[in-house]
Nucleic acid binder design. Sequence first.
DNA 1: AGTTATCTGTACCGATGAGTATGAAAAAGC
DNA 2: GCTTTTTCATACTCATCGGTACAGATAACT
Lengths: 219, 219
Amino acid sequence: MVAKGRPRKFDTNEALDKALIVFWQRGFEGTSLSDLTEAMGINRPSLYAAFGDKETLFRRALDRYAEVGPAAVLHGALQQPTARGVIEHLLRGVAEAFTHPDRPAGCLVVQGALSCGETAEAVKQELCCRRASAEAQLRERLERAKAEGDLPPDADTAILSRYVSIVVKGMSVQAADGASRAELLAVVDMVLNCWPAGRATSENLSNSGKGIGVLSRAE
Amino acid sequence: MVAKGRPRKFDTNEALDKALIVFWQRGFEGTSLSDLTEAMGINRPSLYAAFGDKETLFRRALDRYAEVGPAAVLHGALQQPTARGVIEHLLRGVAEAFTHPDRPAGCLVVQGALSCGETAEAVKQELCCRRASAEAQLRERLERAKAEGDLPPDADTAILSRYVSIVVKGMSVQAADGASRAELLAVVDMVLNCWPAGRATSENLSNSGKGIGVLSRAE
DNA sequence: AGTTATCTGTACCGATGAGTATGAAAAAGC
DNA sequence: GCTTTTTCATACTCATCGGTACAGATAACT
């Protein structure tokens, strides 16, 4: 299976990786086609022929990110045997991936198009869906843990997964602000230390009997 | 003190508030001058005469945001008598402010320019500094709490303030994703429930004797 | 009334945005 | 060697970007 016409002068995968890095650094709106062609080492028509328009290229980069970037951590985490293991693997893995020395800090799915103009609205929605999907997968995994007796039967998996999701998103912003790996991991340790299942108590896994917002104060 | 020349046809404060909303929704890069003039109900030269260029206007909007937006919650929180009260006021206030029905979801300081092109680099840095400043203020307040015996003497205020900062940033993204006020508040309840000082134990306030990363697993 | 100072509206500036037309170049198939 | 097919490089399109020149309008001050 050899191509017929003039062969490509560049490697498509390598070029996509370069594009991924640029999008990751600057976001969708902040990246111009000139930024892309310069980083990829190709010129404009080659880019369009190989990847389609800017939005299509961004989606390709997103898929690539899901395979090799921090987003890949979730997949491994979900396969851990215990709920505690899932959370630990996820948070530690993400803290490390967000501070990888050779890659942009933080998460492309968070920073790619958090708020934007109308022209990037579709991309923003796509990222929003991916974030929601990650949280949903996590929640299903915790639901399974509950069914297996790994989490107390009154655990609120919606709140738990949302909490973890929030911590991950927060770490992404913190990493973009320049937080070091050690700083993020220290927070992860604290979160894990507070992780309810680590205490073998269900009191903070739900609000059963108390109702949301009616908590005893500690003063 | 009456102005001399032709009087302004619009109210400067109202116009600034309109600009704030647009920046808050679309971010710095995602907002065009046409978006601004349309929302503010004035035309371009009036905008430039009254506020300077786009970046200056954004900074004015930021200052306004610090007074009336979610950022104002921090100020009230820092004045709470106990560390626990500070955190509770901050997290609850922010959860509510990020989901105010009449305002854009989330936080301008987080979403205004998280990642961007070169032209917005200065704005990005400014936002980064403001986030860091908030965390530093929180840390100083916790340090005071430690001095007052309100927190255990071995509490690591750097990690604690960073943790709270991460939760706030994460909630901002979550709110932008469409999370409801009740959903955020439920997470806040869980965080507060896990808040170490609420348990009158210092074991998860520091890693004393164990060292970061050497935590007992719960399996 | 006349002067001066400021604001408004239109119409414009050069630069850059994303996307493309076109012809030369380089390979395979015959 | 010639055709076919695909890629490459230059140079272009049109729209929009942030920012401004200029003339008319509207007020206070003298």
